[in-house]
Amino acid sequence: MSCVLAVDDTRALRVMLGECLKKGGHEVVLAVDGIEALDKLKEHRPDIVITDLNMPRMNGLDFIEAARKEPEGRSLPMLLLTTETAQSLKDRAKAVKATGWLTKPFDPNQILSLVEQLA
């Protein structure tokens, strides 16, 4: 069982992601954007982060970049979950040291497998 920090500004998706992870037996912490995610990261020290890309206040990329500077996030697996497929964004994701890239629509089983695999 892992503690998963799920970050998405879209409530329906956030909750759905959360429920899916809970069904997989994981502990779930939810955040609505990068700013909240950073707080939750320090507070809950998750084993893995799954974050949306486009969010208000702080987007997924900026969040990962910031999280990598925190002791809690330095070597943490952090996945981006998004509908974007542009290579330039993937390059940016790599540059900020995102662990990986997932495109929506996500499959719950796939998410759970990845959590097993990475966290």
Partner: peptide, 20 residues
């Protein structure tokens, strides 16, 4: 223009056929 592959977008990582 950014590739408009979203409509048919499939998961980049597929599900495992059998549980690991």
């Amino acid at each position: 223009v950014p590739e408009t592959s979203i409509v048919s977008a499939k998961s980049t990582v597929e599900v495992f056929d059998t549980p690991p």
